[in-house]
């Protein structure tokens, strides 16, 4: 295979990734369930967007839809995922595969399952060069060693011959990152990239991701449940709940003056703001099952501001003109409180 033709890279002011109205349905024994319901966001090169939410909110499924790696039980039923001017959801599988690596790539949470256990890591990291750039085995190997050096693997030439289980968790995450950035993607999706790691190693990995993003001007989509990671690392945040976007905007503003009661509830639940001996202001209940998402506002069962209108009518995600939006009938009230 020769060098594949992909459309030109986006300029600085057009989004590197533009997701619009994404819907994903899940087939279960009890019928079809909507797991992602009309999610939209976009991110430019060099910027970091966080998809923030708790388990089951649809953030990972959104990420997997973007890179086309959804489980067969799940199906994209609507929306668009645009990169370099075209909608990947309308492409053939072969066309989409050409984007995987040079345009879109992903780093998973669990590096041990994401790497092939029976292949030396050097060969795995060099693979994108063989497939997309048509390099020889030897050339790909040199590229792999270069990348391993870049992500901070000591003695990369020797270590290229090792297998994934011979590395620590932090080193495996570095290998995965090396593979993801190999072809200089426009967009790097990082799905909970440090959740399984120790705190001090976590900090090293986040630093590495930031450095690589800066030198390659990648757009990064960070999937996480950790508010502190969002605060430290992202420019913009999309808060998801029960498959929908409930609030979005610049991190600083959203976190200092949330306009959705769920965002406020999450921020209040962080023990960092709490005084020892005083109860944490917890959000009551837990997120709804996909089969039981209420027809009105998705957050109504747990919301301290809930009124009759919230039960009757689902609030749309409304933009307020200052780069922020929220899906709450009473967000002005919350802003004033």
């Amino acid at each position: 295979m020769t060098t594949t033709a992909v459309p030109a890279a986006p300029s600085a002011d057009t989004p590197a990734l533009d997701v619009e109205g994404l819907c994903v349905d899940l087939s279960t024994p009890s019928g079809r369930l909507r797991a992602v319901d009309g999610v939209s966001f976009s991110v430019r090169r060099g910027r970091t967007l966080a998809l923030l939410g708790e388990s089951g909110c649809g953030k990972s499924m959104t990420a997997l839809s973007v890179v086309g790696l959804l489980d067969p039980a799940a199906e994209v039923t609507g929306g668009a995922v645009r990169v370099r001017g075209s909608d990947t959801l309308r492409m053939s599988p072969a066309e989409r595969r050409k984007l995987a690596g040079p345009v879109l790539s992903i780093v998973f949470q669990d590096a041990l399952t994401a790497l092939n256990p029976v292949q030396p890591v050097g060969r795995q990291i060099g693979e994108p060069f063989r497939i997309h750039r048509g390099l020889s085995r030897r050339e790909a190997r040199e590229k792999a060693i270069e990348l391993m050096t870049r992500v901070g693997i000591p003695e990369p030439r020797e270590r290229a011959r090792s297998y994934p289980h011979q590395f620590s968790g932090g080193m495996r995450q570095r290998l995965l990152i090396a593979m993801a950035v190999a072809l200089d993607p426009d967009v790097l999706i990082a799905d909970e990239p440090t959740t399984a790691l120790d705190v001090t190693v976590q900090a090293q990995i986040m630093r590495l991701l930031r450095d690589l993003q800066d030198e390659r001007e990648m757009a990064v989509v960070l999937i996480t449940h950790d508010l502190a990671v969002v605060a430290q690392r992202a420019d913009d945040v999309v808060v998801m709940y029960a498959g929908t976007v409930v609030e979005e905007g610049p991190v600083r503003e959203v976190f200092s003056r949330p306009r959705h009661p769920y965002t406020r509830g999450l921020l209040d639940s962080v023990p960092e703001h709490a005084v020892r001996g005083r109860p944490l202001p917890a959000v009551p209940g837990s997120p709804p099952e996909l089969s039981a998402v209420p027809s009105g506002c998705v957050f109504q069962d747990r919301c301290p501001l809930v009124r009759e209108r919230c039960v009757r009518e689902r609030p749309p995600l409304r933009a307020s003109g200052d780069g922020r939006s929220a899906a709450c009938h009473f967000s002005e009230e919350l802003a004033r409180a």
Partner: peptide, 15 residues
């Protein structure tokens, strides 16, 4: 546990 639920369980333990 999820963050919003974590706070509930911490409250139970303190109480």
């Amino acid at each position: 546990l999820d963050l919003s639920v974590q706070a509930q369980v911490l409250n139970v333990l303190s109480e």
